Simulated assay, not measured.
Amino acid sequence: MKIAQFLNPQDVISNLAATSKPQLLTALARLAASKLKVDEEGIASALMQREALGSTGIGDGTALPHATIAGIAAPFGLFVRLQKAIDFEAVDEVPVTLVCLLLLPPERSAAHLSALAAMARKLSSKERRAKLRGAKSSDALYAILTEED
Rank of each mutant, 00 (worst) to 15 (best):
P22G: 04
D11M: 03
L78Y: 10
A32D: 13
T146P: 07
I72P: 15
E89P: 10
L113E: 09
V96C: 06
I58P: 02
I69Y: 04
G42K: 10
L103H: 07
T62A: 14
G59E: 04
K35A: 06
K136Q: 12
V38Q: 06
A85L: 00
H66M: 03
F88D: 04
G134M: 10
S124W: 02
S109G: 14
T26F: 10
P22Q: 00
L132T: 07
P75L: 07
L145H: 00
L16S: 05
K131E: 14
T68D: 03
I58E: 06
R30M: 10
L116C: 08
K35G: 00
M48V: 14
D60F: 15
L64C: 09
E40I: 05
A130I: 01
K126D: 13
L31A: 09
A140F: 00
L145K: 01
L102M: 10
E93I: 00
L64G: 09
L78F: 11
D92Q: 05
P75E: 04
A63Y: 06
R129A: 09
E93V: 00
L98V: 07
G57K: 02
A32L: 11
R81T: 11
V38N: 05
A143R: 13
P106I: 01
T68S: 12
L145C: 01
H66Y: 08
A73R: 13
T56Y: 01
A140R: 08
S109M: 03
E93K: 15
S109E: 03
S124D: 10
P105G: 08
Q83I: 00
E127H: 08
T68H: 14
I86E: 01
K84W: 00
E93W: 07
G54Q: 06
D92G: 02
D11C: 08
A85M: 00
A17M: 06
G77K: 12
A63T: 04
A70F: 02
A67V: 12
S138A: 15
L78E: 05
K21E: 04
T62C: 15
L82I: 06
I58K: 08
G42N: 13
V94Q: 14
S109C: 12
A67G: 03
L103A: 07
S114I: 02
V12G: 01
E93M: 08
R129H: 13
D92Y: 12
I72F: 08
S125F: 11
A67Y: 11
S125L: 02
I13D: 00
L103K: 05
L116T: 13
L116W: 00
L36H: 09
I86D: 02
A115R: 01
